[in-house]
Design a binder for these strands. Structure first.
Lengths: 315, 315
DNA sequence: GTGAAAGCGCTAACAA
DNA sequence: TTGTTAGCGCTTTCAC
């Protein structure tokens, strides 16, 4: 492996001159610059990135902690992040966590070991208290709101989005609604429950199913909901794919949507467009873009991203 | 920033002993090991990864060149790669190319600069001839078949999958079929055309539309196909989201699927499940997993991944 | 078992 | 405008 010393020797200059050429410094004699460039070309030389990063203490790489990598919502987030990173000449390393506390800590340790300039936490298992110390080693940005001033946030006001969705159902004449969520322990689930109480009051037993991630989960959830003695007349799904599964189950039972069953999804995904599902679009791509901007700028701002409701025929 | 020297000094040992502790060497006196560990703990020390990578010349990181990062097929590929990488304790850096030759070369240069141990090329703009020289700097694996022995391949036999799909349509009584592809210049498109000729003979003019990536593209493509003087009776879409768009357009024209128009998609995606679309599942997730295994093992094997046709109600 | 010292490949302060 | 040299933080002989 040829290195900077070889180049210097062959070009008959010092390593610093080679370094200057490499970094486009002004004050290098034209002829020296040219001969250095020539040798570099001949030797097919490329500087070792680790040596550079070691000195600079910077990598222009951002780690993205992602619980699931086969989930459309997190894909949207990631896509936003990637777009912004590309724009700014940053590299993105994907860090799948499966909500494992240990994995998350492992990734935060990598921030500490200088592998990344910053980390975006799209969702987390650990408490903020255990995460915050790592802010000393790089910029940490969350896609969920937190009061902690050390953490930049690119977030959605989920509570009010849930309120809006439930209110929409109430306006359509529903007195209750069933709903699904992803993780039972998540903040989002908590907000969903609060929003429900706010709009409809007490939640009928069996009206909340958790751990729904994909179309099949939605199908099963709908089956469960519709076998309840007091069937719900409306369902709020935590994603359009889940909503799609519900739609399919309803159809399989010869039910009409929305007259027999109203369905509302989230994130404006293709299957929802296909089936004509009303959806709450949280604009996760924008959330991702903003999150990436924040890490790059090492900003700790709290940026709320607006959501919008896309009305189609399922409500 | 505390470093290995600080730890050595504070623990009253040499840096080599600290290094030995860090790397779980056997021959370190118990008391020294303990005092080193204690100081590490107290100082909250983590070794600098760049220094280590610089020496070892290895990073346990793989770069994945991905033309589009908001495309479901490439998402599936990436998900497979991520799953396998996680299993083997490798990190994945996503390298969006948008089929730019320059970007691709930039990423290959990063392989040369030792940032990655290997690179997976999911799809490419450059010729193999310009890519191959980079095999000297790390393992390069392709998700497309190539004869070049330097390149490991985890691939699909697209030609025969296309034959199968067209044959299926022919068996159902169709004498022609329209189809969509992604990039006009791609190998895949070439194979699609060849397969078409093999099964149906000459391609009626207007029966091939390129640059279809998403549901909206499919909608537009169907509109164009169905405005043709000789309407096609069947369409083979290059993805289920594209197929979904076609389905929606057909429905908007009060056409029945499959009696008025047969539609077959690819990749078994949620929208296809939702709409009951027959699809050719190339098992891209498995392709990704296998590709990742190959880079990790620095293998240059050619691994063909089987596809399967999922029959639903759209054909 | 342990430490001194020579790198790994590069940048940057300093002196010339 | 250039070269010398001291690092960056770590691993790894080699000698004791």
């Amino acid at each position: 492996m040829t290195n900077i010393n070889d180049i210097a020797r062959l070009a008959g200059v010092s390593v610093s001159t080679v370094s200057r050429v490499l970094n486009n410094y002004k004050y290098v004699a034209k002829n020296k610059r040219e001969s250095v460039l020539k040798v570099i070309e001949e030797m097919n030389y490329t500087p070792n990135k680790h040596a550079i990063d070691l000195i600079r203490g910077e990598t222009r790489t951002i780690g993205v902690i992602l619980p699931y990598n086969n989930n459309p919502s997190f894909d949207q987030l990631l896509n936003g992040i990637l777009a912004k990173a590309l724009e700014n000449d940053f590299l993105i390393t994907v860090l799948p966590s499966k909500y494992s506390k240990e994995k998350e800590m492992e990734y935060l340790e990598k921030l500490k070991s200088k592998l990344f300039d910053g980390i975006i936490i799209t969702s987390r298992a650990n408490d903020w208290e255990t995460i915050i110390p790592y802010c000393d080693y790089g910029s940490i940005v969350s896609c969920e709101y937190t009061e902690h001033t050390e953490i930049g946030c690119s977030y959605i006001d989920r509570y009010s989005s849930f309120l809006d969705a439930f209110q929409l159902l109430k306006n359509k004449g529903h007195h209750t609604a069933a709903f699904t969520t992803a993780r039972l322990e998540s903040n989002s689930t908590k907000q969903m429950l609060d929003a429900y109480h706010e709009i409809f009051g007490a939640l009928p037993s069996g009206y909340h199913i958790s751990d729904c991630l994909c179309l099949e989960d939605g199908y099963e959830a709908a089956k469960q909901f519709l076998q309840l003695p007091e069937r719900p007349t409306a369902i709020y799904a935590n994603g359009d794919e889940v909503a799609g599964g519900m739609y399919l189950y309803a159809k399989s039972q010869q039910m009409k949507v929305p007259s027999d069953l109203a369905i509302i999804g989230q994130e404006n995904q293709p299957v929802g467009i296909g089936l004509g599902l009303t959806t709450v679009d949280h604009q996760l791509m924008k959330v991702g873009e903003q999150a990436c901007s924040l890490v790059i700028k090492k900003s700790r701002k709290k940026m709320k991203i607006p959501y919008r409701i896309v009305v189609r025929e399922s409500v």
